[in-house]
Each structure stands twice: as structure tokens, then as C-alpha cells.
Design a protein around this nucleic acid. Structure first.
Lengths: 358, 358
DNA sequence: CTGTTAGCGCTTTCAA
DNA sequence: TTGAAAGCGCTAACAG
């Protein structure tokens, strides 16, 4: 006679396991959580495990969360998962978090500082163990203050927060050395013989963009060159932004031999704009980006850029927030590495964006 | 005299709010959850809200989860967030879920069917409200059976599951019409004048890959053409896989004028392999992919492919799992759209991969 | 409409 | 070691 196994999806609870093992729920709980074979006699422990196995017991993480007051959740706040740079960071965060048995929740902000703050609040409410915010922080002081307050509240609640960005708030931070990377790039490009540059940047709010622009300028200065302010054009931090900015440069017939887009995605847009005007990247004008997202090596000509180990950024951030040390905010610096590819050959004499257009 | 506000991070609870508002926790709870101004008198409701506001109350979602037996969590199981196709799906899922006030947790499987199942188990344990698995399902019957069992268990527990893949399990599914898309592509390529094709595919386990291959063959047959089995080479479903497969074709000096990679990422790898051998995509051999990931339009020559609205796939999946209807598994079909770009010009007479190599 | 009173499933004192 | 019992914060019957 088959026992009438109920098909009703009543989850098996710790109580069930305890009953079957003939112990109290307290003991069963200890068997699962107690540090190895302390607390619980080996025999009982074995009985509990056996019972759990037979019943297919799965602990209810929410009940654990409410009882313990903490969770295994790590929140990742990101601008846009489909941006290749950020999705690589996400991959690093997820890989590292899963190694530690943590669960990653991803939320996206679409670059809205307000939503960023909302997400931090939500993460505090969820009692997330840790939180990582990846992305170019804004220079908007107002929003920054509020974010700082929320981050501090989050940490006061027992969570750990880390930023992947500039070191601008008193929490653990993984910084990308944007300035030095852009500087090195400028030096190398100048070394190639370029003298007249344009930069595709964003409005001043994005620090990443500002730092890269500043670094690039540093590099030029070092080589005794000057960046004409008129040749710094603005656009969004996206492909479309790069497209629009380059468009402007073209219309203006800027007299430059090399264009630096503050990130690869913008460089892609810039390349598209050039193509549409019948201009060849590398031949008519040199083009460089920043980030080394996976696809730019597949461009032809392949894009000169500054390589950033994006996954590593994510991994480092998780490493920071999971490290229990209590000695205040730490900083991990990650350097970029200039990668010269075919998009930036040495300039041909007399050849520049403006001459190519005429 | 400033009142000594405690700095201790004791979260404010519903009890605190109720106390301050002078009502019971039950009423406070109703004020928050009750459908609009039913259940609770407007005045009390206002008092509760005011108290919550003053105290900065945030409901503890875990306590709610344990009390309610359900959550606002949506699990997204994906192979690799950093793959552009999947990250676009993820973006769609996140956008749609956030609109509904749901929280998305992402886990990655690295294409290991075993981990996929583990994640489903974990989601059931978390009492996730819904779950979306995106990715090419395996043809491994064993793993499939186990996945099905877990998915059913998940739904038995009150959750809703959806797949973005072939319609192969009895749960809501968003299918990409791989076969018809590949068929249309083949027809168009043949229409361009190509007659001798090669396909970069994967081993037989991935249904997506199999369907695209089959569809491509269908299209050729329709045009009275034949795909030489020797010209179907295998590689992983990644850039590296495409690179290796193309490598093989090159070594073999295959006599073809057009190569179809079953996805864009593989096509990127194939393009790299061609470049390394001094071959020009479009001139020496035509190349086409599938998916239309954002970057392929930035290749030069831009890649011919089949456009898939990846974000839409994610959005549709969330739409399915959030739709409360109870009439069994539904299917939403999404069609691809052939996009002919410069990578597949009409063949030049006498010109093929093999001749270009000699 | 509102308060009382049980829980939800788990952890953690506190005694034994 | 182990168990009884008291929570964790919230929801939901059940009365009134």
C-alpha cells in the first residue's frame, strides 16, 4: 500500500526535521549552524542531517533573516546591466559572491542619482549584508550628501558598503585610476606624433569623465602640448553621446588629427559618425577610447584604449565588503593599461579631420 | 535642549509606528497593505503614515515574507551576465520587474545545467514569486528531467516560472523563432548569389544552435542548395568558439563564399580569425551572425545578422510570470528579423575562402 | 473599522 | 550537550 504522500506543497520546516530526528528545533538548528561538531553530539547531528535529507529540507532564508537580523544578500547597484563595462563588473561581483554563498540582487539606476539612493534605502530595508555601487559618481553635491547619509545609515545597520568609483565618500572604495590612465594615453599618443587633439567628454557632472579629461590634458602638458578648449565637446556617456559629439566636431571641421573619447562606448558612436561622413578611422583621423570593453578589439581598425580589468573591479569590491576588518574605509586602486591598436597610427603630414573633410 | 537621539541603529518597527500613532500593529499593518482607504478609517491611516514618516519606518521584507509566505523576489538565472545578448535580456527583466516593484536577483550558471537546477532550488527556498531562466537549454535529457521536476516543484510552491528558450518544458515560455529566422537569413543570402556555405555551430547539446543550423539548412533547401556536412564545423557558443571553428575552416581551405555563425559572438571570433589570416570579411568571404547584439553594427564591415529584440524577450518573460491567469503554460513567440549589412555582399565570381587563401 | 491573539520558521538565551 | 521558551517583525483570523 503506497502511503498517501500529500501533493500539497507544504514546505518542510525545521520543526519537521526535528520531529523526525527526535530532537528539539533548537538542537536541529544548532546542528546546521553550530561551528562544526561543537554544540551538538555527533550522533544527534547525524540524525538531524539524515532527517533533513529524507525530507528534502530547505531552510527558509527569510525566517533566518528575521531571526538573525542579517542576511546573505549582496546588493549591486549599477547604471545599466547591458552596458558592457558594467556587465563585466557585474560578472565579477556575481562570481565572487557566489563563491561565498551569497545572493546578488541587481538594481539599475539609469544614471539617476535619486534612484541610486532609493536602492540603497531598499537594500538597508532588506538588511543586505553588503552593497556595491558601481558607476561614475556624480559631482552633484546635493545628491552626494544624501547618498553619503544613506550609505552611513546602511553601515550603521550592520552592512558594508563599497563604491567602485572615485574615492569620494567615507566607505570602502575601489578606484579606477582614470587620471593617470588618461595621462599615459595622451603621452603615448603624443609620442606617436599627434599634436592637435579633440576630446569627446560629458558634461561636468560625471567625475569619471572629468578625471579622464583632466588626465589627458596632464599628459599633453607633459609633452608640451595644449588642448584647445574648443575641441572639447560634450555628449552623453553613451554610444549616442559619442555619436553626437563627434558629429559636432565634424560639422565644425575641427583641425585635429586625433580624437579621444572618454570611454569606449562613446568611441564606438564616434566611429559610426565618422563612417557616415565617409571618413576612415585611423586614416583620416585617429581615435582612442577608454575601458577596453570586449568588443573594441573586434573593430577594424581595432581601437586604441586604456584597458581596465572590469571583472576585477567587481571582485575587489566584494573582497572589500566581505573582509571583516574594522579599520575604517579602505581603498583599492586599479590602474589602467594603455593599449595602442590600429585606430591610432602616427599622423600623416597635412592630414587631419578638417583636411579630410574638404 | 537637543533631545539625545540615540545613534544606535535599531531599526524602527511596525510596533514603534503603531505606538506613536496610538493604534494596534494590526491597524498599522492594514494602513500600509489594505487596498486604499478600505479597512482603515482615513484619520487613523493618516496618523499611521505620519508616524511612519516621522520615524523613518521601513517595512522589513523578510518579516513580511515569513508572515505572508511569499515575496517580491524575481529570480533571473542566466549563463553569463557579461555576454551582451544575455545582459540585454537581463536589462529587460530588470526594467520590467522594477516597474512592478519587484526585486531581481541574478545568478549565473556558466552553462552548467547542474548549477541551473541548484539555482532553481535556491529560488524555491527563497520563496521567490517568479523565476526566469534565460539561455539555450540543453538537449541533455537527464538534466532536463531534473530541471522540469524542480520547476514544477517551484510552481507547486506558488511561484511562477518562465523560460526564454525553446518550448520544451511545461512552463510559460518565450521562444525565439530560431529556425525561421535562420531560414530567412539563408534564403536572403542565397538570393544575394551565394551558393557554397559553411556554418559555425556548436556541438549538438544546445538547441538554439541546432535550430539555427536546421533553419539555415531549410532555407538553402528552399533555394535548391545543399549544405555540405563537412562545412559544418563546431565550436563553443562563445567568441573563442567562433574563432576556433573558423580557424578550422581556414586550415581546411573550405571552398565556400559565405559563412554563417550561429550567433554574433561566434561571428566576432570568426572575424578575428579571418583578420589574422589576412582575409577581409566581405571581400574574401561573406560572414553572417545571429542576434544583432549592439556591437556588431559597429564592426566594419558591419555584420549581417538576424535581429532579436533581446530586452523584449526579458520584458515578455516578466509579463508572463506576473500575469495571474491560470490556464496552463503559455508561449510567446518572438521573431527575428534579417538585417543585411556590409559583411555579406554578393559573391565575386571565382572568389571564395579557398581561393583567397591561395 | 479596530484590537486581540495566534501564528510564520528560525535563532538564541536561559536553565537544566 | 540539550530542551523549553522567548523572541525576530509582520500578517491574518477572529472577535467585537
Amino acid at each position: 500500500m503506497a502511503t498517501a504522500r500529500t501533493a500539497v506543497p507544504v514546505a518542510v520546516t525545521l520543526q519537521d526535521v526535528a520531529d523526525r530526528a527526535g530532537v528539539s528545533t533548537a538542537t536541529a538548528s544548532r546542528a546546521f549552524n553550530g561551528s562544526k561538531d561543537r554544540n551538538v553530539r555527533a550522533e544527534l547531528r547525524a540524525r538531524v542531517f539524515a532527517a533533513a535529507e529524507e525530507l528534502g529540507y530547505l531552510a527558509n532564508p527569510h525566517a533566518q533573516a528575521v531571526a538573525r537580523g542579517r542576511t546573505d544578500i549582496v546588493g549591486l547597484v549599477i547604471h545599466d546591466v547591458s552596458d558592457p563595462f558594467f556587465s563585466s563588473i557585474a560578472a565579477g561581483v556575481i562570481a565572487e559572491a557566489e563563491r561565498e554563498g551569497l545572493i546578488v540582487t541587481i538594481t539599475s539606476t539609469s544614471r539617476d542619482p535619486g534612484r541610486e539612493i532609493d536602492h540603497v534605502v531598499s537594500l538597508r530595508q532588506q538588511k543586505a549584508r553588503a552593497l556595491v555601487i558601481a558607476g561614475s559618481r556624480t559631482a552633484d553635491q546635493e545628491a552626494l550628501k544624501r547618498l553619503e547619509a544613506e550609505l552611513l545609515a546602511f553601515e550603521a545597520g550592520g552592512g558594508r558598503a563599497a563604491l567602485i568609483s572615485q574615492r569620494m565618500l567615507p566607505v570602502d572604495t575601489v578606484t579606477l585610476e582614470n587620471r593617470s590612465g588618461a595621462k599615459a594615453l595622451a603621452v603615448d599618443l603624443a609620442g606617436l606624433g599627434h599634436q592637435r587633439f579633440a576630446v569627446l567628454s560629458t558634461g561636468s557632472k560625471l567625475l569619471t569623465s572629468r578625471d579622464r579629461l583632466a588626465g589627458f590634458r596632464d599628459g599633453l602638458v607633459r609633452k608640451g602640448l595644449h588642448l584647445d578648449p574648443d575641441n572639447v565637446v560634450h555628449g552623453e556617456f553613451t554610444r549616442e553621446g559619442g555619436y553626437a559629439a563627434m558629429q559636432e566636431l565634424i560639422i565644425r571641421r575641427a583641425d585635429v588629427t586625433c580624437v579621444f573619447a572618454v570611454n569606449d562606448v562613446m568611441a564606438l558612436g564616434a566611429a559610426a559618425a565618422l563612417r557616415e561622413h565617409g571618413l576612415a578611422v585611423g586614416k583620416d583621423v585617429a581615435l582612442a577610447g577608454f575601458d577596453d570593453i570586449p568588443t573594441v578589439r573586434d573593430l577594424s581598425p581595432a581601437l586604441t584604449t586604456v584597458r581596465v580589468a572590469a571583472e576585477e573591479l567587481g571582485r575587489l569590491a566584494i573582497g572589500l565588503v566581505l573582509d571583516e576588518r574594522e579599520d575604517g574605509p579602505r581603498v583599492r586602486k586599479v590602474h589602467g593599461e594603455v593599449v595602442i591598436r590600429e585606430s591610432t597610427p602616427s599622423p600623416t603630414s597635412g592630414r587631419s579631420l578638417s583636411t579630410a573633410l574638404s
